[in-house]
Amino acid sequence: MNSVIAIEKLNHYFGTGQLRKQVLSGIDLTIDRGEIILMTGPSGSGKTTLLTLMGALRSGQEGRLQILGEELRGANDRKRMMVRRQIGYIFQAHNLHGSLTALQNVRMGLEVHPQFSVTEMKARSAQMLEQVGLADRINYYPSDLSGGQKQRVAIARALVSRPKIILADEPTAALDSKSGREVVELMQKLAKDQGCTILMVTHDNRILDIADRIVHMEDGHLQPQAPSPQAPSPETHPPEIRKMR
């Protein structure tokens, strides 16, 4: 099986009764192994909901939602937890644990996988930090790192267990353009090395060129062809607005 994500006629609702509101309607999306997909769209269009569904953070309600061969429609907590272990997450905020050093934070990405020994976990985490260019910062606490460095630690944490899918929600939003670019190129390089699939929600027009494919979300509907990077659509908010959210 080649597709790691297979979504067909996916509908999703928030609220119940009178307040029930449809946020996703009739989503069809198939993503193959190794693809890098960017998802754009205005805020409130349902991008993040789709991302959390694909990340097994919510159960699917209607339609087919197959992640790594597991059907997640109506999946229970345990099944979703097991799927999550094979997915790497990169958030807009780095969400590093302030009481842990860079190395310990990365190591947390391995500890959920029982097959690694202590020495293996240490070696892999250190190696991963080296790959993101933080070899000399492995024993630093997040408070002693810059924004770009923190995001790179977060990437190391997401990638250290060699996940099959990386889900990223505006990983560059809190970074200046130079470090944003660096971070995305790093993700691209590491993902290609490991052969993993990346799905990234972004508003950042400067990084659209790394994508194999761009999809656009509008009012809960997915449009396969996004507006071209050269002529951004008027609905797309500039990154500054998202930052203030």
């Binding site: 990340g55 345990r78 937890m81 272990r85 094979q86 997450y89 969400n95 947390m108 990405g109 959920v112």
Partner: peptide
């Protein structure tokens, strides 16, 4: 919440 997302129960 991040740990939960990473697959911790």
């Amino acid at each position: 919440a991040t740990f939960k997302a990473m697959g911790y129960g």
